[in-house]
Computed example of a mutant assay.
Amino acid sequence: MNFDLTDEQLMIIATARQIGERFGTEYWRVKDAAKEYPFECWQAICDAGLTGAMLPEEYGGAGLGLVDMALMIEELCKAGAGATLAQMFMLNPVFGGVAINKYGSPSMKREWLPKLCSGEMTFCMALTEPDAGTNSLSLKTTARRNGPVWRINGQKIWITGVPQSEKMLVVTRTTPEAEAPRKTFGITLFMIDTKRTGLSHTPIEKLGTNTLPSSSVFFDDVEAHEDEVIGTIDGGWEQLLDVLNTERVVTTAGLVGAGYLGISLAVNYAKERKVFNGKPIGSYQGVQFPLAQHWAEIEAARLLNLKAASNFDNGLPFGSESNAAKLIASQAASAVIERAMQVMGGMGYAKEFHVERLWRDARLFRFAPVSEEMILNFIAMNNLGLPRSY
């Protein structure tokens, strides 16, 4: 196995680092406090050509792989953003880019992918429902054919980035669950305009990730057209899994970056802070050992995540690696950011020292986009061969 990075990957990392440092911790502190979408940062990422890393060159992309995207997300998040910036890659290169590039029509690719790469068009995905969170197959949002069009009715919840998006990937049921074949499950994906008659949304007040709003979304006879179908009618389940499995790698890359940032903030503080005998608190093993432990955990999650991304790029199964990496990264990032707050004492509770924002944001990823418990279920069944427990 070769762990060396190519010259191109080193250049990608350097570019991401420059952008990340340009929009550092203070930028994200201000945006978080104002609950403002980070338009300037995202446009800079698009202008640098990072958004379309995984998309074909003919549509404005770079024709690279998931490993390259994971590396750039790590660096961007490590420089100041923390875990929440990874969500913007979920919304656009994954929910928009992966879905359209793999399953969209030729006209979708020609018209929308260049705009995704340039930042002219942004995306979101409507999957989760009030009564269908982890169990996506129980979704109740329906799309029913009505002459030449489809009519979408239902409700979604915890949908990220809705007000700022132009397009929404909507996961619907087009055949009742009891009648749907076991292989296809009667699920269909549509890519529709967010600002469409009958589609409304309301914000959800939440603990963190304030730069990206979360919304409840309501569909009241929303019109969808045949040329807005992503993939095949009733065959959207496997297509959805392709999108969601890629999302795991992106999430983990953001958590790895956030973990490294938390360690950096704690270490810098511990080197400067002196108490009692005039020695920096970083010289005490009680401060050193927890940070060292969490560094090892973050590093392990990073390597496992890059293996998952490499498997994806080479057409190999990557579910076990991506799920396990996300499990370790979410726990380690939350733990090390909590530890950073403890190292700083009262100052760790102050917004100007940034770790409280990282702490609020990272906590989300213990249960999203997939919970620890469901990952453990997956590992128990698929890697240990144990019987299904739910």
Score class of each variant (00 low, 15 high):
F3N: 11
T6Y: 12
E8I: 13
T15R: 14
R17L: 11
I19E: 01
G24P: 00
T25I: 10
K31M: 13
Q43W: 05
G52N: 04
G52E: 06
A53Y: 05
G60A: 06
G61N: 06
L64Q: 07
L66Q: 07
V67F: 02
V67R: 15
D68W: 02
L71H: 15
M72W: 06
M72A: 09
L76K: 03
L76S: 04
A79S: 15
A81M: 01
G82H: 02
A83Y: 03
M88G: 03
L91E: 11
N92G: 05
G96C: 02
K115M: 06
C117H: 11
C117F: 09
E120G: 11
T128I: 04
N135C: 04
K140D: 05
N146D: 14
V149E: 10
Q155A: 05
P163S: 07
M168E: 01
A178I: 06
A180S: 08
P181L: 10
K183E: 15
T188W: 07
D193Q: 12
R196E: 15
T197M: 08
P203H: 02
G208V: 13
T211V: 14
D221L: 08
V222W: 02
E223F: 00
E226Q: 13
E226N: 11
D227Q: 07
V229M: 05
G236F: 03
E238I: 04
Q239D: 15
A253Q: 02
G254A: 07
L255N: 07
V256A: 11
A258V: 12
G259L: 11
G259M: 11
Y260P: 00
G262C: 04
I263S: 03
N268L: 04
N268P: 01
K271T: 02
E272M: 05
Y284Q: 10
G286R: 14
G286V: 08
A292Y: 12
A300D: 10
A301L: 12
A301G: 10
N305E: 06
K307G: 00
N311L: 07
N314V: 00
L316W: 05
Q331Y: 10
A332E: 13
A332I: 14
A332H: 12
A333S: 14
A335K: 14
E338I: 00
R339K: 14
V343C: 08
M344V: 15
G345Y: 08
G348D: 03
E352H: 06
V355T: 15
D361I: 04
D361S: 08
A362W: 02
A362V: 03
R366I: 13
R366L: 15
F367G: 02
S371C: 13
I375T: 12
I375M: 13
L376F: 01
N377Y: 06
M381A: 08
L384N: 11
L384S: 09
S389Y: 07
